[in-house]
Amino acid sequence: MYYISQYIQLQAGTVLFNGNPFFQSEHSEFKGFAKELYQKLELQYPKFYKMDNLCKLAFLASEIILQGNQESDVALLFSNQEASLGSDLQHQAHIQDPEQYYPSPAVFVYTLPNISIGEVSIRHQFKSESMFLLADAYPSTYLLPYTQYLLASGKAKKVLCGWFRMQDDNYEACCYLVEKEGPIAHETQTIE
């Protein structure tokens, strides 16, 4: 049996950490919210400013949930529905009109959803298992047994599972950390 040791929810300017209010932004739109939360966390990480919104969301959620984590073998299983839609639209806009054609590598690199895994891995130096899944709703049917498998087979010591919605200005992050000990049983009811 494995347990959820920490969990976090970010949406509409609000952060709930382990079910308790952690942060309330004056801004509900993502840009203002992300900036304010970054400042509140007193981070010095210039790479943050280069990230697209999906990566910023995954980065901020991971930053909070991994506070105090000492383990480096943490698998990252991230998911969403729209993949990297925000950056995809931006890159498409750069190439749509042949008269104003200027694809940018700084945008194009974010047109893959698993770049968010790369950003979190770099930040926390996780040389670990990872996977990005796409689904219409959180794929708990697959992530529950897969998480158990990674832990039971010794392929990871902890697993960070996350859902990162970033469509227009509709954003939502739900993440939880699974390990050997914790207050909440890791089962279908608790992860849904």
């Binding site: 590598p105 895994i117 996780f126 670990s128 298992e129 990872s130």
Partner: peptide, 11 residues
Amino acid sequence: DANINDANHIS
């Protein structure tokens, strides 16, 4: 099989 990240650079 294994799927391990470099944790080094995004591109």
